[in-house]
Design a protein around this nucleic acid. Structure first.
Length: 587
RNA sequence: GCCAAAGUAGCUCAGCGGUAGAGCAGCUCACUCGUAAUGAGCAGGUCCUGGGUUCAAUUCCCAGCUUUGGCUCCA
């Protein structure tokens, strides 16, 4: 199932990576022309482009980017050859004696590896390559410098901050244009922008950053998501639980959260000489329910789910719209299972997860299997068994997957599912995680057939992740044009004139009785303006009502996609109900 | 948290060392309308907050808060 590239595609990709990497060198040359004392760090090719990190004598402005661009164009036009030479370490050290970052990189190259330099005339870089033969292969009209950003040297928070310049580069001007259009599309779909335009939600710095306010229209969508979620959980053998928002410190000490994540938790509140913490996770609470009685192997598995709102102190600079917030609702569940049940339960969780994601319109899904890291709790056999269970489940579902060796949490291996949205971006939504830690820490037991108390296995899982984030992804995926089953308002009734206001209200009542989300526009705008307003809100159906419709029990349907038709009111209701029931998108 | 940029009306933005402007939205009035904006009028602002410089600060400087783009982080 994995993406197989043909030889030709692979070569084309390699070439483009070389172009981008070489662009980075050209940019470095241009920057050194402008700032001869600049320290240069690294400059790789990345997805869609390249960057280079510099330590510069002053801050860069956008005008500087223009000048760098002009200089790069000049360099490209000179047909400079990229020449590779292998040198000794001493030579390299001499060459870069005034470049401290390069010296550091040089020291990091293993003894048995060659040290190679690439030169294109005025610029030599310590570099493994590969590069294009000559700047002839680069296209002055197919690159663009995009942004200036700060980046830690070697990505380490404690290291100095360098100036990074990002650029994009392509094979020709047309590809660049398409990419720039893609960026514009991303901007149009931005959930923060659409959230305002469609009046879905807001954030209020004065009331607390990273905390989401759901407006009626956003809340309608959320209700649809949650209702569907609850129904499906009951259908799939889960029980819904509700747990508190705060708990005494011993809970978080026992769970280990205070030890590992204290900095990311909201500070405690003191009451009756006790510290209470706002929950950053739901698991300890579900565990309290588990411990409420002695559990038998006959009771297991327990599948307890909760739309649990948690609070985490995210760093100020990390907040981003709905995607990264400080208060969010996990569509959480914890499964307490016997070792025998593990395989089957994992398989079911995965199947359920895929079903949910498909229901929301995500078809392309990829799995990531993360295995035991260096530092981990739990015996090796349990890790092996759990990891195998995860792998078997992925393979049974025929999912394309990658293994992230050592990428698991310290308490257990996990599967993450990433979806691809309408414009090809990946978002991680579902996660299924084994936990060898909590049952141990809370000393969970069940009495097995043989009368012996044993540890249950515990599985954490979230299908949508956080409702806030999932909602943000949905907004961007659909660009705000939600399929009718999710749309906050499905139908807008637009009378052609005041004479039909009464009929509009009557029709509205009838549609509402039929379960549709509908309202009438009885303002004093002209019909055209009303259509425009409904269209801007991406309302799926607009019903224009006048004499013909009122007298014939008809509706003139205009969909937001621009299709028009006239059908009987009954027929319209039936059609919409069908589309809603089948969760189809409007065509 | 770190680097950089930004913060002016509900929204999108212009402007500027002499205490502010547009479009849209809102309100009022007129128009009574057949598939993406009818017209006119009115109202709306501690120019993010706190200091400093200055005769005078929304404008310049400093600090803070928030947002944006990255970096780091993300149980």
């Amino acid at each position: 199932m994995s993406e197989q590239l043909t030889e030709k595609e692979r070569k084309a990709q390699e070439q483009l990576a070389k172009v981008r990497h070489s662009m980075a060198h050209v940019m470095a040359e241009a920057v050194l022309e402008m700032f001869p004392t600049a320290q240069i760090a690294i400059g790789p090719a990345i997805e869609n482009g390249f960057y280079y990190d510099f330590d510069l004598p002053r801050q860069l402005t956008n005008e500087d980017l223009d000048e760098i661009t002009e200089r790069m164009k000049k360099i490209i036009g000179q047909d400079k050859k990229f020449v590779r030479t292998v040198v000794s370490r001493d030579e390299a050290r001499k060459r870069f004696s005034d470049q401290k970052y390069k010296l550091e990189l040089l020291d990091a190259i293993p003894e048995d590896e060659e040290v190679s330099l690439y030169n294109q005339g005025g610029f030599t870089d310590l570099c493994r390559g590969p590069h294009v033969e000559s700047t002839k292969e680069l296209h002055a009209d197919a690159f663009k410098l995009l942004s200036i950003a700060g980046a830690y040297w070697r990505g380490k928070e404690t290291n100095p901050m360098l100036t990074r310049i990002y650029g994009t580069a392509w094979n020709n001007a047309k590809e660049l244009r398409l990419y720039m259009e893609h960026l514009a599309d991303i901007e149009k779909r931005d959930h923060r922008k659409l959230g305002k335009e469609l009046d879905l939600f807001s954030l209020h710095e004065e009331a607390g950053p990273g905390l989401v306010y759901w407006h009626p229209r956003g809340a309608r969508i959320r209700q649809q998501i949650e209702n569907f979620w609850r129904e499906e959980h009951y259908k799939n053998g889960y029980e819904i639980v509700y747990t508190p928002h705060v708990g005494k410190s011993w809970l978080w000490e026992t769970s280990g959260h205070l030890g590992f994540y204290k900095d990311s938790m909201y500070p405690p509140m003191e009451m009756d000489n006790m510290d209470y913490y706002v929950k950053p996770m739901n698991c300890p609470f579900h565990i309290m329910i588990y411990q409420n009685s002695k559990r038998s192997y006959r009771d297991l598995p327990f599948r307890w789910c909760e739309l649990g709102t948690v609070y985490r102190y995210e760093k100020a600079g990390a907040l981003h719209g709905l995607m990264r917030v400080r208060g969010f609702t996990q569509d959480d569940a914890h499964l307490f299972v016997t070792p025998d049940q593990m395989d089957g339960e994992i398989r079911e969780v995965l199947r359920f997860s895929l079903y949910m994601l498909h229901s929301f319109g995500f078809q392309e899904i990829k799995a990531y299997l993360s295995t035991r890291p260096e530092k981990a709790v739990g015996e090796q056999e349990r890790w092996d068994a759990a990891t195998e269970a995860l792998r078997k489940a992925i393979e049974a579902e025929g999912l394309d997957y990658e293994v992230d060796n050592g990428g698991g949490a310290f308490y257990g291996p996990k599967i993450d599912l990433k979806i691809k949205d309408a414009i090809g971006r990946e978002w991680q939504l579902s996660t299924v995680q084994f936990d060898f830690n909590m049952p141990e820490r809370f000393k969970l037991t069940f009495v097995d057939k043989d009368g012996v108390e044993k540890r249950p296995y515990m599985i954490h899982r979230a299908l949508l992740g956080s409702i806030e984030r999932f909602f943000g992804v949905l907004v961007e995926h659909y660009a705000g044009a939600f399929p009718p089953w999710l749309a906050p308002e499905q139908v807008k009734i637009i009378p052609v004139g005041e004479a039909y206001f009464d009929y509009a209200k009557q029709l509205e009542g009838r549609l509402r009785q039929a379960g549709l989300r509908v309202s009438s526009d009885l303002g004093d705008d002209r019909m055209n303006a009303k259509i425009r307003n409904a269209q801007k809100l991406k309302t799926p159906y607009m019903l224009v009502i006048g004499e013909k419709e009122a007298s014939g029990d008809l509706v003139a349907v205009r969909t937001r996609t621009g299709k028009q038709s006239t059908v009987s009111t009954g027929e319209f209701i039936k059609q919409v109900q069908e589309i809603v029931a089948s969760k189809q998108q409007l065509e």
